[in-house]
Simulated scan of single mutants.
Amino acid sequence: MAPKSPFRAFQLTSRTLRQSLFRQPVRRRITTAETTVEPPSNLNAFQRLWRSPIGPKTVHFWAPIFKWGVVLTGISDFARPAESLSLTQNLALMATGAIWTRWCFVIKPRNIFLASVNFLLFCVGATQVGRILSYHQSIKNSTFPEEAKKAAKHEGKIAEGIVKDPEGAVKKAEAPIKA
Rank of each mutant, 00 (worst) to 15 (best):
R18D: 13
R18K: 12
W103D: 12
A173M: 07
E147C: 11
P109G: 03
I54W: 00
F61Q: 05
E155M: 04
K4N: 12
R48K: 15
A175I: 01
L12N: 13
Q89W: 13
A33R: 13
T58H: 04
T73W: 10
A175T: 12
I132G: 01
S20W: 08
L85F: 04
R51C: 11
S86R: 00
I132T: 06
V37G: 03
T35K: 03
T13V: 05
A63D: 06
T58N: 03
N141P: 00
T88P: 07
T36N: 09
S41W: 04
D165R: 05
P40I: 00
V106W: 13
Y135P: 01
K57W: 09
L87K: 02
P56N: 03
L120H: 05
P176T: 06
A148V: 02
M94V: 01
A152P: 01
V170P: 05
K67C: 10
K178E: 15
E160L: 14
W100Q: 02
E155F: 00
D77I: 00
S52R: 02
K57H: 09
R28V: 15
M1P: 08
L12K: 12
R48C: 06
F10W: 10
L17W: 11
A63P: 00
A79H: 12
I99K: 04
P53R: 03
T58D: 04
